[in-house]
C-alpha cells in the first residue's frame, strides 16, 4: 500500500469506529486497536499509541457538550482522577515490559467484557439519595437538573472501593490504549451508586485526563507514530462529531447489537492471534 492509500483506509475505518462508538455511547477506542492489528497488520504498540490519541480527541470533544448540561461532577471526577492517572502511568510502563502476546490476550478478554457491557440496558441501579459519604470533607455529592427543573441530589457511597476500581480502569487504559469508559461507569454507577447520567458524563470528562497521563509515557517510548496517529485521530473525531449530529435514539438498540457482534468477533480473533504467538 502506498502512504496515501494507507492513510485513506485508516481514516475511513477510524471514522466508522468513531461513528459507531458515538451512536452507541461506548466510544470507538476499543475497536481501533483490533482493526489496526488484525486487518492492517499494524504492530500492537503503534496501534495502542494511535488509539490512545484518538481517545483524548473524542473525550475532550464530547466532554465540552456535557459540562454545559450540569451533569458532570467536577469534584468527584477530580478525586477519582488521582486514581486513574496513577493507574494509567503504571499501565503505560507495564505495556513497555509485557510481551505483546500477553497484552493481546488481556485485550481480547477486555473486548469480551465490552461486548457484554454494550448489550446491558441503561438505567440507574440504585441511586443513593439519602446516602452519607463516609468522607464528608471530600464533598463527594452533588445535584443535577431533574425532569421538572427541580434539583435531584445524590451522594457517593463506598468511595474507597470506587477509587480502587478507578485505579484498575487507569491501568487498563494505559496498558491497552483505550478509554475504559465501561469500567469507569461501572465504578461510579454500580459501586459508588451515583446516578447513571452523572456517571457517564463524569466518566467522559475523566477519560481525556487518564489518557493524557499514559500518552506522555507512550510518546517518550516512541509508540506514537505521527503518520499512523493522524488518520486515526482525525477519523475517530470526524465520526464522533457526525454521530453526535445524527444521534437517533430509535435505532440505538440495533446498533448496540451490531457493535457487540463486531467487538465479539474481534475478541475471538485477538485471543486466537495472541495464543498463536503472532501478536
Amino acid at each position: 500500500m502506498t502512504i496515501l492509500h494507507f492513510v485513506l483506509v485508516v481514516f475511513s475505518g477510524s471514522m466508522i469506529a468513531g461513528l459507531l462508538g458515538s451512536l452507541t455511547g461506548l466510544g470507538g477506542g476499543v475497536v481501533i486497536v483490533p482493526m489496526l492489528t488484525l486487518m492492517l497488520g499494524v504492530d500492537l504498540r503503534y496501534a495502542i499509541g494511535a488509539s490512545l490519541i484518538s481517545v483524548i480527541a473524542t473525550s475532550s470533544g464530547a466532554a465540552s457538550a456535557y459540562v454545559r448540561e450540569g451533569f458532570t461532577n467536577i469534584r468527584i471526577g477530580m478525586f477519582l482522577e488521582l486514581a486513574t492517572t496513577i493507574g494509567a502511568i503504571c499501565g503505560a510502563f507495564l505495556a513497555s515490559v509485557l510481551n505483546p502476546n500477553t497484552i493481546g490476550l488481556i485485550f481480547g478478554v477486555v473486548l469480551i467484557f465490552s461486548a457484554v457491557f454494550s448489550l446491558k440496558g441503561k438505567g440507574d441501579a440504585a441511586v443513593s439519595t439519602h446516602a452519607v459519604c463516609p468522607w464528608p470533607r471530600l464533598q463527594l455529592q452533588g445535584s443535577y437538573p431533574g425532569p421538572d427543573k427541580k434539583p435531584v441530589y445524590y451522594a457517593a457511597s463506598r468511595p474507597a472501593f470506587g477509587f480502587g476500581l478507578m485505579g484498575v480502569a487507569g491501568v487498563l487504559s494505559g496498558l491497552l490504549g483505550i478509554g475504559s469508559g465501561a469500567v469507569k461507569v461501572l465504578a461510579m454507577d454500580q459501586c459508588m451508586k451515583l446516578p447513571f447520567k452523572v456517571s457517564t458524563t463524569t466518566s467522559n470528562f475523566m477519560i481525556g485526563v487518564t489518557a493524557a497521563a499514559s500518552a506522555g509515557v507512550y510518546l517518550r517510548k516512541g509508540y506514537i507514530d505521527p503518520v499512523l496517529s493522524m488518520p486515526v485521530m482525525l477519523g475517530v473525531l470526524a465520526g464522533a462529531l457526525l454521530g453526535a449530529k445524527l444521534l437517533v435514539r430509535a435505532k440505538t438498540k440495533a446498533l448496540r447489537w451490531l457493535f457487540a457482534g463486531v467487538v465479539g468477533v474481534m475478541a475471538v480473533q485477538m485471543i486466537a492471534k495472541s495464543l498463536a504467538g503472532k501478536m
Binding site: 500500500m1 502506498t2 497488520g41 499494524v42 504492530d43 503503534y46 496501534a47 516512541g222 509508540y223
Partner: peptide
C-alpha cells in the same frame, strides 16, 4: 508517490 508504508514491525520513533 510510490513509497510503501508498513507498521508491521516496531522500531520506536526517533
Amino acid at each position: 508517490r510510490a513509497q510503501k508504508t508498513s507498521f508491521g514491525q516496531f522500531h520506536g520513533e526517533s
